[in-house]
Nucleic acid binder design. Structure first.
Lengths: 106, 106
DNA sequence: GCTTACGGTAAGTCATGACTTACGAAGTTG
DNA sequence: CAACTTCGTAAGTCATGACTTACCGTAAGC
């Protein structure tokens, strides 16, 4: 159920950019804002969306809040795509069979 | 490079609904519109987006156009998520090590 | 050939959401 | 405790895109 929120979150380029920075490890909001062409409040709003989607975790250190990628949040999305891929392949093969049968009957 | 378009395409609920119908196999536009709570032109527009993203293929049969999921288009998205997941896990472990070291130094 | 099914495109409306600046809360430092 | 850093939130603007209806091309059937 959460994969829908996750995929919507990752659909935004700015949020993918944030996630890409966080690939190296946790970072505070200010650092993320410096690395991106948008304002700090914009980053905060994106972090909210990503956190709500279960893709990030936060740990407070003094006044700084370190955001990090949550591997668990990604798992749901991966699973959705895997199942979709399986079904797509099955339908693809099934249709290929039907096509060849049609040809054989001609 | 195409995964960005693909994830944006799959972020829309109506488009995911279309893809879900196509899991069983190819279908013409009219059938998709009947199965969904939106108009036929809306479906056409979504099919355009999904096709441009490389997620669908079309085969014309008379006046009907059968749309089907393209397994290749999904592969890029899966690969992106797999790499992201790898990096996230690595960063997660790396950070766990630093945390324990910090604790040890106290 | 004329009508009927099928589907893509144009144009217009309306909601959503990605930004901005301004402000306030909470913690750290001198 | 006063100044400063860090960050979240409120409010407002503006662009994008998800719909609708209307229209036009194209293939099939009588």
């Amino acid at each position: 159920m959460t994969y829908e929120v996750a995929i919507a979150a990752l659909a935004d380029p700015s949020r993918r950019a944030i996630v890409d920075v966080l690939r190296r490890g946790p970072a505070p909001v200010g650092d993320l804002a410096k690395a991106l062409p948008i304002s700090r409040p914009a980053v905060s709003q994106h972090l909210r969306v990503l956190s709500d989607a279960g893709l990030l975790t936060v740990t407070q250190h003094g006044t700084r809040r370190y955001y990090a990628i949550s591997p668990e949040g990604l798992e749901e999305l991966r699973s959705y795509l895997d199942h979709l891929w399986d079904d797509a392949l099955a339908a693809f093969r099934d249709n290929a069979v039907k096509q060849s049968e049609k040809k054989a009957n001609k």
